[in-house]
């Protein structure tokens, strides 16, 4: 989860791993401030997002030419690899057009499975904002990916 979130924020594989490492270090150092009554996942997710945002601020001078992610799953049979790569590349390109917060909300909701309210608490924004960001993100992705689906 941590690496996925930092990748969603930074869109740069090496930077994302740097931020993920920072997140784990921060979590380790803050471990005695973690309340066991709270859920570990959102706590760690918040640290990851903050670490990625901090790194993004520090490296804003870097021209943002994201390195395409290597798809980690080696599952699909060879005849599906090309299709999946095309789909992945298109999704990657579509994701790049979204504002950072929309990407994070989208990943927290669709990949990590958090509820709107949890995402709101995690990011410190109202639940309505989460819903709005999610709606705009999905509409944009739908628009960008539709030609592929229809083709």
């Amino acid at each position: 989860m941590v690496r996925r979130l930092t990748r969603a924020v930074l869109r740069h594989a090496a930077d994302a791993d740097d931020a993920a490492q920072e997140a784990f270090l921060s979590a380790w150092n803050a471990l005695d401030r973690f309340q066991p009554s709270q859920a570990l996942g959102p706590w760690l997710a918040r640290i990851a997002v903050n670490a990625a945002r901090d790194l993004a601020r520090r490296r804003r001078v870097r021209t943002t030419e994201p390195v395409p992610f290597d798809r980690a799953d080696a599952g699909p049979p060879p005849d599906q690899v090309a299709d999946r790569r095309v789909t992945g590349e298109r999704l990657d390109a579509a994701l790049a057009t979204l504002p950072e917060r929309q990407r994070v909300v989208l990943v927290l909701f669709e990949v990590e499975g958090y509820a709107h309210s949890e995402i709101g608490q995690l990011l410190g924004v109202p639940e309505g904002t989460v819903r709005s960001e999610l709606f705009h993100a999905k509409r944009k992705l739908r628009e960008l990916l539709r030609p592929l689906k229809e083709g």
Binding site: R3, F69, L91, L95, E110, V111, G113
Partner: peptide, 16 residues
């Protein structure tokens, strides 16, 4: 939730 989108995003963002 859109499970298909979730799977694609996970595959895209999962790091090796």
């Amino acid at each position: 939730r859109d499970p298909a989108l979730g799977r694609e995003l996970r595959a895209l963002l999962d790091a090796g």
